[in-house]
Nucleic acid binder design. Structure first.
Lengths: 338, 338
DNA sequence: ATGATTGCATAAAACGTTTTACGACTCTAA
DNA sequence: TTAGAGTCGTAAAACGTTTTATGCAATCAT
């Protein structure tokens, strides 16, 4: 049997010579037991290696101390397709580690809307959903079921939904563009992703705003997040076909690496003729030659914020949001003009 | 409340005008109900959006349809440290997607041996543990609790433990070395990782065997898996200090990329003077110039094998093992001599 | 001496299922 | 008629907790 080693609350009670109520109270710090009895019961429980059965407890209490994580890129992962951004790949691990520190389990749920739904799915205390997009069906389903959830990134088209956290995208975009400006570039090309999430939308919006402020014409090249370095090269070739740019801002480190390779292959020097930067750091940005300036996102910080917000939501029924964390710009050789 | 929308088996029974037993039997295909009654009950259940409470069911049946995954690199991920091999990062996602297809949830458990243990941890039906090492404490704990588990990679020093799956490492090592040989290299340098897992051990063993067969002296450079491309460069410099090699075999794609950069920086041409290959593919191997020959591991295949083995173990108490999947060599420009 | 208060412990109900055992019919065969 | 065999359905126990309500002493105030 997977469940327990057979040692139940009854075993502890018998061994300690008390009722099962006493054991429950002693172990949970409730009721009106004498300190002496409490101590004795705890000792016996330890000795027997007793652990309260999670299901029995969950059934009685209505909550289980476990939360679900809907990881968006999992669909793509089904057949091991690489995805674009460092953050996606590590987020499960990060959330999990942080959740543990708060005494919560986390369960990965690939897609809540496709059946068969995993047995535990609707018994989670709450959910974190990653990068929700417009009309997100998972968010809708959770709402219908009355299961609390928070999101990594806002839900586009749902300004009323406040329980989300993310990096401060407009701030990051602004800082990156200003960084280009400082380095001497006035016209910037944007290589954007294709997902309709807040990340892409916010950056594009800030980029357009900045362009109109500068009086320059926006040049946006869309490229699927999933296409990786090869997609970056392709985008780079498209850009070159329209003229050598002063600066290129890519949403992912992989795209940036690819664009850089395409430019260099065409004899364009980086950072001599063209500056390059990425809106999300990844090992590709770090290990390219020259190394590519990038924004280092803060998934650990966001994970903390999300968990905290979810815990508030579970405990009190509401929570403050949204919560923004500040990412940090990592200037590297790709934007350094000596 | 997170738990359900309040609709229980009793509600369904009342609405359908039958007993709760009838509902349970109808929905689980048991008992001796007429087809007509079954259909009616199912219709009502659908209409009400009834979902059996996972805890109540788990409590009664003793199993829950959920398995735990102990992901080894999670400790390192706590503060977002990059790790060496593609496979590690994606394995959670892959297992999760595959598990879903089999109707199982998967719960990430960072470290079973460190308290507080997540509430659900000991209620899982079984576990998959990743890359166990010698004297693995997690394996020991699960054994003590009588919880079935399978491992991705064998447990070094435990030949009696058979419930594991992995790529066929010795075969991969042999094929890679033969590939070098075909391309004209007789002396091969090995850049090994530092973890004491089966992966490193098996490769080293096969490498040594091959060297003695060829009558050449093994040259092994150890480099931590966590050091990434920078570590690869460092290893490359160490190698060069000992002389320009005919061929370099790296355990990770990142190391290979770094070694290649170090060689190129020193004016050594790849593949002209030195061949390079990696024992595990990663985007770094794919996107380096020249692209680096690598072994494409098969984590999806292993995940399937592991889940199947675990299901056998849960159902019958034993399972056949170990199970080896064949990885595929991806020849690329870094070993191509025209 | 009596009634009220306090301190400690417990009995029993409840959570929502699944399962076992049994009951009430209807039909067939003698 | 009645025994035996099927057919369809249900009552009740059980899973392992937590919680509510209650009980029993001993102590206290009158």
């Amino acid at each position: 049997m997977a469940r327990g080693q057979g040692v139940t609350i009854r075993d502890v009670a018998r061994r300690a010579g008390v009722s099962i109520t006493a054991v429950s109270h002693a172990l949970n710090g409730k009721g009106t037991l004498s300190e002496e009895t409490r101590a004795r019961v705890k000792a016996v429980a330890d000795e027997l290696g007793y652990q309260a059965d999670a299901f029995a407890r969950g059934m009685r209490q209505g909550s289980i101390g476990a939360i679900g994580l809907v990881l968006r890129s999992l669909d793509a992962l089904g057949d091991y397709t690489p995805v674009g951004v460092d953050v996606f790949e590590r987020f499960a691990g990060i959330v999990s580690a942080r959740a543990l520190a708060k005494g919560l389990s986390i369960t990965l749920v690939p897609d809540l809307t496709r059946s068969p739904v995993p047995p535990l799915a609707f018994s989670m205390d709450g959910y974190i959903i990653m990068s929700p997009h417009e009309e997100d069906p998972v968010a809708a389903l959770l709402e219908r079921r009355g299961i609390p959830y928070v999101a990594y990134g806002n839900i586009p088209g749902r300004p009323d939904f406040i329980h989300w956290a993310s990096e401060d995208d407009p701030y990051a975009a602004h800082q990156l563009l200003t960084h280009f400006q400082m380095a001497g570039a006035r016209e910037v090309v944007l290589v954007s992703g294709t997902d309709t999430n807040a990340w892409n939308k916010d950056f594009q919006a800030e980029y357009r705003r900045w362009c109109s402020e500068q009086g320059t014409t926006p040049r946006i090249y869309e490229q699927s997040e999933r296409s990786g370095v090869d997609g970056g090269r392709e985008a780079g070739e498209r850009i070159l076909a329209d003229g050598v740019p002063e600066a290129v801002l890519c949403m992912t480190g992989r795209h940036a690496a690819g664009v850089q390779q395409a430019l260099q292959a065409a004899g364009v020097s980086v950072p001599g003729q063209t500056l390059i930067a990425a809106a999300s750091d990844s090992e590709h940005a770090r290990s390219s030659r020259p190394a590519i300036t990038a924004f280092e996102l803060n998934p650990a910080g966001c994970a903390d914020q999300l968990l905290e917000m979810l815990q508030d939501l579970l405990a009190t029924g509401n929570a403050q949001g949204p919560r923004l964390t500040k990412a940090r710009l990592r200037p590297r050789a790709s934007t350094r003009r000596d």
